[in-house]
């Protein structure tokens, strides 16, 4: 049964209006504008685009222009191998990093969920705390560790494992490490929440019925924590696909992730329609899987 939408009283409307109007002005209108400019043509002007349609010109002018809708920026997006490759690289690196992060986060979350009840808040607090320290600085720390004369290479050389430094910085491997490290707290938290909420008696029942610990884990614990794993993976994957700082600082000049391409189009090439079209395609790419998962769940 669907409850009918209620009409709010004047006081309540005023309370709702403040955050609502803020979001319309600073989130919904801007998004609409990105869409509009993605349909424009780029130009050497200030601002660097020629509007395809302008609401000030009256309906007939808008309809006239709508016929010649500028899909140039989108055509350019698909014609330009740089953009296509950037989307693929972003999805692949973010996907790989998310898979690794889930593999690392799961044992940590499980260990915390199975700890003494009084210790749990402290341990989960410690696991999540790095998320509240500067993102930029945590990425920067890895430059120090991974560069040729960095701590990782010097340690390996001191141990006699390698003779010459491994070039890790400025590769996709460094970007993957950086993403796993930066987003790990985001993945641990939902998995922990799912594991902590599990009823202990289910595992006891499995054990009473003769299941080995591994079998209990595979048939009871793991399936029951699937929602936490999916939530953690999505929380990391979505921002990681559009990541700019990590590929820019840890990647090489050939690590072209979509966030970086958009940044360059915006600040260096000054092709705002292309960057806007890139943003719209990125949103479509990311909203697609979320809607699909929501549908499957309900």
């Amino acid at each position: 049964m669907v409850e009918r939408a209620r009409r709010l009283g004047a006081g309540r409307r005023a309370i709702l209006a403040a955050p609502y109007l803020w979001l319309v002005a600073f989130f919904l209108v801007p998004l609409a504008l990105v869409f509009k400019i993605s349909l424009s043509r780029s130009a050497i002007a200030q601002p660097p685009y020629v509007p395809t349609f302008d609401f000030g010109e009256g309906l007939s002018a808008i309809l006239d222009k709508a016929r010649t809708f500028g899909l140039d920026a989108y055509r350019g997006l698909f014609a330009d191998p740089l953009y296509f490759e950037a989307y693929l690289t972003s999805l692949a690196l973010a996907g790989l990093a998310t898979a690794i992060a889930v593999a690392i986060a799961y044992p940590i979350a499980l260990a915390i969920a199975r700890s003494d009840k009084r210790l749990r808040p402290v341990l989960i607090g410690l696991a999540v705390a790095p998320f509240w320290t500067s993102f930029l600085i945590r990425v920067y720390a890895w430059i120090m560790i991974l560069k040729d004369e960095g701590l990782f290479n010097r340690a390996l050389m001191a141990l006699g494992i390698i003779d010459a430094p491994l070039p890790i910085l400025a590769t996709n491997a460094a970007v993957t490490i950086g993403m796993v490290y930066s987003y790990l707290p985001f993945v641990v938290l939902p998995i922990y929440a799912a594991l902590e909420a599990q009823d202990e008696s289910l595992r006891e029942a499995a054990a009473d019925l003769g299941a080995a610990p591994l079998a209990t884990f595979l048939t009871v614990t793991l399936p029951l924590s699937a929602t936490g794993v999916v939530a953690g993976a999505l929380l990391m994957f979505i921002p990681a696909v559009g990541e700019f700082v990590i590929p820019d600082l840890l990647g090489g000049s050939d690590t072209m992730m979509i966030g970086r391409v958009m940044w360059n189009d915006f600040f260096e090439n000054r092709d705002w329609p292309a960057a806007s079209a890139g943003a719209i395609v990125l949103i479509a790419l990311l909203v697609g899987p979320i809607v699909w998962i929501e549908r499957r769940r309900t």
Binding site: P19, L23, V24, F26, F27, L28, V29, P30, L31, L33, V34, I37, P47, L234, L235, I238, P239, V241, G242, E243, F244, G259, M262, W263, F266, W272, A275, S276, A279, L282, I283, L286
Partner: peptide, 22 residues
Amino acid sequence: ALFAPIVMPEIVLGLSLLLVFV
């Protein structure tokens, strides 16, 4: 609109706000 910025890539939010200010 309230919760989308939590997961949305920051670059999209930054870009869209810049376009409005311009």
